[in-house]
């Protein structure tokens, strides 16, 4: 099956995020008075062929651990969704 993956990488809690802090300080000047807790990160999208969602998640977790996030300062959230129609096509990696 083919899965769409979205990996959000952000700085861990407690790690200073000067980009987020600067944005947050700028917002009141635009009239956004009630926004707080701004954190800036990265979004990385890609597709994965895997037997099932668990296999896809295991592969993506490994990819995050080895490359996409630096565990000293960052953490990653992974969202996975099956490609519509991918199951019906028989699953290339199955």
């Amino acid at each position: 099956m083919r899965f769409h993956a979205l990996v959000e990488v952000r700085l861990r809690a407690g790690i200073a995020d000067p980009q987020g802090a600067t944005l947050e300080r700028a917002l009141p000047a635009l009239g956004f008075e009630s926004v707080e807790g701004v954190r800036v990160g990265k979004a990385i999208r890609f597709d994965v062929d895997a037997f099932d969602e668990a296999a896809a998640r295991a592969e993506i977790d490994e990819l995050c651990r080895r490359l996409l996030a630096n565990p000293v300062i960052e953490e990653a959230d992974v969202s996975i969704s099956p490609e519509p129609g991918s199951m019906a096509a028989g699953g290339r990696a199955g």
């Binding site: 790690i15 200073a16 000293v72 300062i73």
Partner: peptide, 17 residues
Amino acid sequence: LTEAGMLPGALQKNRHL
């Protein structure tokens, strides 16, 4: 060297960007 795990820690963006 830090990314390669040959030295500990990490180098972040400078304070005040």
